[in-house]
């Protein structure tokens, strides 16, 4: 299964703002399938990391309490135009996804 992940990174006043939008169901494990009545197993992103020019700046641990198709924005100090920002996630099934952009 493939998931989309869109990132934007913008440098401003010595800081870089990163915005990420990920496709993911973020199932809690508490929902039931409306047709079959069977429980839908939990399936959510557990770990989200961000690297600036290959150096880790943030590691987030998530639970299924984060909304479906998670949106995460944060800032870090530093970062210049054309630097690389790479974000990766790993979910509860061990699936991973990575996306990289240049700072604008």
């Amino acid at each position: 299964m493939s998931y989309n992940m869109r990132i934007k990174a913008k440098a401003k006043n010595g800081e870089t703002e990163v915005k990420a939008l990920m496709d993911h169901p973020m199932e809690t494990g508490n929902h039931k399938d409306a047709k079959t009545g069977e429980k839908i197993p939990a399936h959510f992103i557990k770990e989200l990391t961000c690297e600036h020019n290959g150096k880790n700046v943030m590691t987030a641990y998530l639970s299924s309490g984060v909304s479906k198709n998670p949106y995460v924005a944060f800032t870090f100090k530093g970062g210049a135009k054309d630097d690389s920002v790479k974000m990766s996630w790993t979910d509860s099934n061990g699936e991973t996804n990575t996306s990289e952009v240049k700072i604008s």
Binding site: K55, N56, V57, M58, A60, Y61, L62, F74, T75, G78
Partner: peptide
Amino acid sequence: ASFNYSGDC
């Protein structure tokens, strides 16, 4: 969720 920063946040 818990966001952990290793650099300058």
